[in-house]
Amino acid sequence: MSRRARIALKAAIWGGCLVPLGTLVYWYARDDLTANPISFVTTTLGDWTLRILLASLAMTPIRLVLGVSWPITLRRLLGLFAFFYVCLHFSVWIVLDFFFDWHRMWEDIVKRPYITMGMLGLLSLIPLAATSTAGMIKRLGARRWRRLHRLVYLAGVAGCVHFLWLAKVGRTDQYWYVATLVLLLSIRLGDVALRAVRRRRERRTATVATAEIRMP
């Protein structure tokens, strides 16, 4: 993919990620945020956090399946937008929903497994956002940085479980998110397993080759 195409793609993702927020602002201006605006805004921001987070988790699998490299350049952008939306989601909860009733919020975090799970997801995204710059990669060293950034899987799992646990009986949207996550993780795990098998085979061929050399 050419440099220009890559920039265009990034710009499109930038714009696309801002559409949900823009829509909320537009609906707010039109007084069209349903009869229960706070609940609606919280849910919408939560939905988009998960969608964008799953999109960022889809980049490596897409690269693996299609054999193209451009998805990797979008990972950070999508991850940061997921962090942006989860921060908005969390702020709405604090400011609009509970209006700084810290006592009640803390009670909920401790007592409600789905909120505990949501907090876990949010917390695991913070170090990733903080170390998202090229400078931080250099400072941490690529290997350590990569290891740290595996936390994104924890965030994905926590986010989906958060949704799964809060959803009312009879609703089904949560299953789609969980199914997507399972698909993405299995592609990722399948690749890890495949590579391990290949490495072992290579090692074996190498040993056989050495043995043959020693034969005569």
Binding site: N36, F99, P113
Partner: peptide, 30 residues
Amino acid sequence: EYGFYSNVNPAVDHPRWSQATERRIGEFRR
């Protein structure tokens, strides 16, 4: 989660969320 009686009761939480407060539609604070 949903008993036969299901009387409104701030002291008995839904297993997954608190029933201590509510948002009256049209109001800002719980």
